[in-house]
Design a protein around this nucleic acid. Structure first.
Lengths: 233, 233, 233, 233
DNA sequence: GATGAATGAGTGTTCATTCAT
DNA sequence: GATGAATGAACACTCATTCAT
């Protein structure tokens, strides 16, 4: 690499590792994710992102074309991240009830742990989903989440544990709603009702409630008693 | 007064209701609500608001000081609206189970009917709740929502219908989460999973699910059968 | 005065004295003088003046036409004021040296006591004197100041005390320069050299210096000794 | 580099000295100095400055942040300029009397030659000195002016020529007052008393008067005769 | 690939002033 | 005479983006 030689010859010592394009891209995306998550698309200044990274503003345009291009990449990468975390779940060996509770409470925790992701989704919804990644890329990843639920739900139905007539998508919607709202609306909810629910103890209760809620939602009524004990505080 | 007659007679369009500050304020807020709801605080251009109203841009500054002042008023007024709708509910005569289902499904419908409000809350949460109305004004209105749930819940407990150990605030959180998510995340959810749930049929199912979910969440397990029939499609 | 009767009949208790146009004008001018003196012509907001007075903004336009008209009146009135103070001087009975010193030190003190006037003159000079009162009105008042100096100076020359070849206008220029600068440049001078000269002790020294300076400037050299003692601290 | 040749060759007028930040800054400051000196801080329109320079309005914000930042720089640079002119004075070889007269008359002329500077100081005093440069930068430059006077004054005292008990700062104040007023108040003074003093002949007289005044102010009385001849017209 | 300089098209905001009552 | 409402023209300032080196 003649370039590297040239650089050494002319010092510029702090540039050495920046020549790695992937690393530059990754740094930009990282900084941009934080910025967009905090202030939204129009609320974020390109200059602000540039100021927080070690390369220059020009690189943003070099790699991502424009602000919107950068935002799209940030959003796509955020979806990839969260799905990657979900893939780590291993529920095959659990009975349907436990698996369903597990998936619900895991989602609750995963969302709570990735607040930047939730904020990006909030922002993207404000923009009516105009910058969502390609359907192909998305559905590939997300269908697996549904398939997992489908598997659990049908196992539960076959075992006579779950009431029939529901869809895995509806269960996903249910779990997502509770887990998402827990992060998305902290600010306004706290301002109105106080922040107790979002402190450690409150979160533990809510997580269990989310598990309870989904399980109770699908269980046949004559099967309910067996888990009722869990939901007491 | 001949003038009034003339005005009714149609012309003098620019003067007809000038010098009526309440009306001017109301028009500005109405236009601004739509604009802010669509594009957020920083995404909305003051000129765009001005273009859609019959008064000039200058009046926004006359009445609201600046863009943020206008946004604050829009948000406060949106909260007032939604609470006003909630006050119309009359649940005193219903048994606890029916009342709870009623309050849940009503919230679901009320949120679905006031999408601008939901979008404003989304936006405000992106801004970390920095522009929320005075706690005094808010809590006065919102505590009543909680008190209603408290009343229903304690009636249900006393009747031996509901399991104990929950709080009205948690029930409110539960109902809000499902009803809110149904509006807030339509865009991204549809892009990933298709829009079926948000069409008329899907919404009807979801509405019932929300009722089921909350009722099943609180009912003692030996009381469940009696409403199980309702939740089938 | 039918008006007064009407007003009593319809209460409006706090307006009673505002109906006196002179008083309204005087109040406006007083408030405006302070405002213009502090912030200049373009730096002063009409609204700010209005806020500090008991009548409405509309009255400014009613009485003075526009902002510039008000400023002109304020300036003219300020000149009238300062001349009025000067007229109180009675120097006829003093010998020329004492009278000259008296006029110099009085001017120094008078300027120091009317800082708003000095600031208005500063501002007017920034505007190249574009709003100065009619020459007729001005010269009538100011020529008297010159005539006073002329009288003292010619008495001094006739008595063989003063050197000849100077003009009363030059003496006036001399006295004015020192007295004016003492007020006009306090801010910048203090920032550079500290504020000592503008505290009580420093001002007393400067006042005497101004007297010394003018007297020494005109005295024939063989007449100097007799006043030299005064100028020691 | 052929490019450099081409540029010298005259054309490419818009590009010729672009990308030369010092030059751009200098041009902006030059234009802004004239504008602020003429109309003050609030009276000057940024667009007016922009219209008179070869770069765009945007550059003002790029280099100076905002209007006030530009004004500050203009003011600081104006102080630097005037001090630079003063440094050219070489008074070491002159006797104290001649040196004092020299410094006084030079100041008079220097101020008269740099009216923009005086006007900026006027304006800054209207603003109560709120935008004055750092004390460090200022005092470094200005203390030298005082030290020069201190040197002359103490030499004069030691030689038995000057009366004691004065301070160099007071002498500086005296000289500044006369020299400053001569520029600052031309407009109003002329409007009242006519402009004769500010024409060539009048200025020559005033310059000599300023020299006379300061010298007479410090000389012991028995030393006066020797210079008295100079002050006759 | 990398950097500071440069830019056009807006963007929120302010001002003196006038109108309707 | 008096008041709050209304206004148009302009104002300082910002933004994403591109250019020159």
């Amino acid at each position: 690499m003649a370039d590297v030689e040239d650089m050494k010859a002319k010092d510029l010592p702090r540039r050495s590792w920046k020549q790695d394009p992937d690393r530059v891209r990754a740094e930009i995306i990282g900084v941009a994710r934080a910025a967009f998550a905090r202030k939204g698309l129009s609320g974020t200044r390109i200059e602000e992102i540039a100021a927080r990274m070690s390369t220059s503003k020009r690189m943003i345009y070099y790699y991502f074309g424009d602000k919107e291009g950068l935002y799209r990449e940030v959003l796509a990468e955020a979806y990839r991240r969260i799905r990657r975390a979900e893939e780590a779940l291993d529920l095959e060996h659990l009975d349907p009830v436990a698996a369903l509770r597990q998936i619900a409470e895991f989602t609750f925790e995963n969302h709570a742990a990735q607040q930047d992701f939730i904020r990006l989704v909030m922002i993207e919804n404000v923009h009516a989903g105009a910058h969502m990644p390609d359907t192909e890329e998305m559905s590939g990843q997300n269908v697996s989440a549904i398939r997992l639920l489908e598997d659990i739900y049908s196992r539960g139905c076959e075992a006579g544990l779950f009431r029939t007539g529901l869809s895995a998508l509806e269960l996903h919607w249910h779990i997502s709603a509770l887990s998402y709202f827990n992060v998305s609306n902290r600010a306004t909810f706290s301002k109105i009702f106080g922040g107790e629910l979002f402190e450690a103890k409150g979160q533990a209760r809510l997580r269990r409630h989310v598990g309870d809620s989904v399980v109770r939602f699908v269980l046949k009524s004559d099967r309910l008693p067996e888990f009722d004990g869990h939901s007491r505080d």
